[in-house]
Amino acid sequence: MTVLNQLHPRVLQTIRRCARGWNRIGTQTQFYAKTLGSIGDAFVHYRIELLRLIAQMGLGAGALAVIGGTVVIVGFLTVTTGAITAVVGYNQLSDVGVEALTGFASAYFNVRLAAPLTAGVALAATIGAGATAQLGAMRINDEIDALEVMGIRSIAYLASTRVISGVIVVIPLYCVAVLAAFFSARMITTAIYGQSVGVYDHYFNTFLYPRDLIWSFLLAIAMAVVIMLVHTYYGFTATGGPAGVGEAVGRAVRTSLVASGVLTVFLSLAIYGQSGGFHLSG
């Protein structure tokens, strides 16, 4: 009986923890559904706020606008990943005597994996983290409650507008990301390693499928939706003062990065399958 009495509180505590976890999942799902369902209201009633957020996310505000804000950050990150693809691809392929296929590596890995994942990291660290910090500061200062008292739909005004802005901004940002990755890979391979420009362009153009670029853009848009939903939720529910806002930003970035990776894996398997969708033959 004594052992049972000691185990009973532990069992109850475990059940309560599981119940709290499921309640958090349900709360998040409800918030995501309301945010997506309020997109129409954001377009109809809050167009000015939507345009302001698009300008802020794309070019930055204050000092960030001088260096281009998110555009420059995404460009630098994807230049780095494109260069890494060229360096690793050339050296690995040269070990087996097929370094001419470095153009294939750039067309294949940059479009399907490197550029989408890098853009997702950049979105989470810049636009997403900024949205969480803004909404968290508004929450702890009771500004969100003040908006609701004035009759403004807080979720549509604050969350849905940011989701729409993230999706709109990610389209030109992803164009910059893909072009930067292609440019850096080509420059490293031809200018530093000395491969012929014609050989590189031949294999690059042969294995760069327009269909893959379209799928890559759709994957980037899906990642932007997931990232903005996660970050707006954590900012909307931030508690505990300034320290709580910082904690919410950290949790949002961690959750959005994991969600982006999982989304990339499942969508890539659904789109390209196990074979990869290409045939390499001589």
Rank of each mutant, 00 (worst) to 15 (best):
T2P: 01
T255Q: 12
M187G: 11
K34P: 00
H231M: 01
V265T: 14
F183L: 14
D41Q: 06
L77W: 10
A42F: 06
V111M: 03
V199S: 06
V88P: 00
T239L: 10
Q92E: 03
G277R: 14
F207M: 05
N141G: 14
G21V: 08
L4M: 09
G68V: 02
I155E: 13
A124W: 02
V121F: 09
F217V: 07
F266H: 01
Y233E: 13
T189P: 02
L208C: 03
R112L: 00
V199R: 04
L64T: 12
L51W: 14
V79D: 08
L179G: 06
L208S: 08
T27Q: 14
I48L: 15
P116D: 03
A191P: 03
I164G: 01
S196A: 13
A243G: 10
V265P: 00
N205F: 05
P9K: 13
A185L: 12
L208P: 02
C18L: 06
A129M: 08
N5C: 01
V88W: 05
I84Y: 07
G58F: 13
I39Q: 05
T189Y: 10
R10H: 03
V79A: 15
V66F: 05
T190R: 13
G240W: 15
I168S: 01
V262N: 04
Y272H: 13
E143F: 07
V262L: 15
G244H: 08
M223W: 01
G194K: 05
A61L: 05
A83Q: 08
I54G: 11
Q56Y: 15
A61D: 06
N5P: 01
T237C: 03
L50S: 05
H8C: 00
L51M: 14
V197Q: 10
I192E: 09
S281T: 15
V265D: 06
G89S: 10
F76L: 15
G82K: 12
A61P: 00
A238I: 11
A252M: 05
I140V: 14
A131N: 13
S275D: 10
L113D: 02
M223Y: 04
T80P: 00
G82Q: 14
